[in-house]
Write a protein that binds this DNA or RNA. Structure first.
Lengths: 143, 143
DNA sequence: CGGAATCCGCACAGATACTG
DNA sequence: CAGTATCTGTGCGGATTCCG
């Protein structure tokens, strides 16, 4: 097993790549991309971009997320240094989450993706209709 | 079931939301986000951003992708109007993929995400180490 | 309130084989 | 070369329960 110069924690497989390359299955950057190119991560970070939010606030805001996935996503984001968790020892305890500077930096590019989805949805919908129509015709022609 | 003004194909659930909102579990934009905030979609589009590529070219370039996932991802991207498929009737047949204008637009924001991952990997790795160390201490203190 | 722990199903992903 | 078809398993994610 050859050693590379580019290693990182959270990187669990057998080989190490000499430089950052998201296209290499075993590169740490690829594993990182797998985590951030994830719908829940994107949504959580986007909400946190609006300001500090508490656990159940996030859960209420993000439709369809389970407590488990929210918990897992938050822990992963915190471990990667993208989110900070703040515990206020009230009764019952109050826990809030916010983006770090690093998370904020990433968030700028994620926001572009979310905005694009909301802005271009109609164009995508048209493309889908056209595609489905073509498929339908082909299937019919094939009989 | 109330009708909204904002509907779209590929939208299969019971309710319809009146305006684009990625935080609503049943909004078409949310379903779109689920598809593009996906590691394989991001990697495929990123490769295609470099120019027209054939099926096996993509497969070779993207480490760890199975032919099934590549095929599914490409079909989904094509249906959403982000990618065009071109068949050249040679023997054997040659099929190449490229981004559409719409896909190119999305790609600009995706590239930001990929670049960020490669650029900030070291900061993330540091955060992970610190987090794991904190966890280790807490676990030890708890005995 | 903010989780952790447990159980469990099924959809998704991998592997393999086959086809035009 | 560029896929489809089929099978199989497994781990993701939902539901539920319990705790500080």
């Amino acid at each position: 097993m050859q050693e590379g110069t580019f290693t990182a924690p959270g990187y669990r497989r057998g080989t190490v790549c000499p430089e950052p390359d998201v296209f290499a299955a075993d590169c740490p950057t690829r594993l990182l991309l797998d985590r951030i190119a994830d719908k829940w991560s994107v949504l959580v970070l986007t909400v946190l971009g609006e300001g500090e939010v508490r656990f159940n606030g996030l859960k209420r805001r993000i439709g369809g997320i389970s407590q488990k996935m929210l918990s897992q996503t938050l822990r992963s984001l915190e471990r990667d240094g993208l989110v900070v968790r703040t515990v206020t020892p009230t009764v019952p305890v109050s826990v809030s989450y916010a983006t770090t500077a690093l998370g904020c930096e990433l968030l700028r590019t994620l926001r572009g993706m979310v905005d694009w989805a909301e802005r271009r949805m109609d164009a995508v919908a048209q493309a889908q209709t056209a595609y489905d129509e073509r498929e339908r015709r082909l299937a019919q022609a094939a009989g």
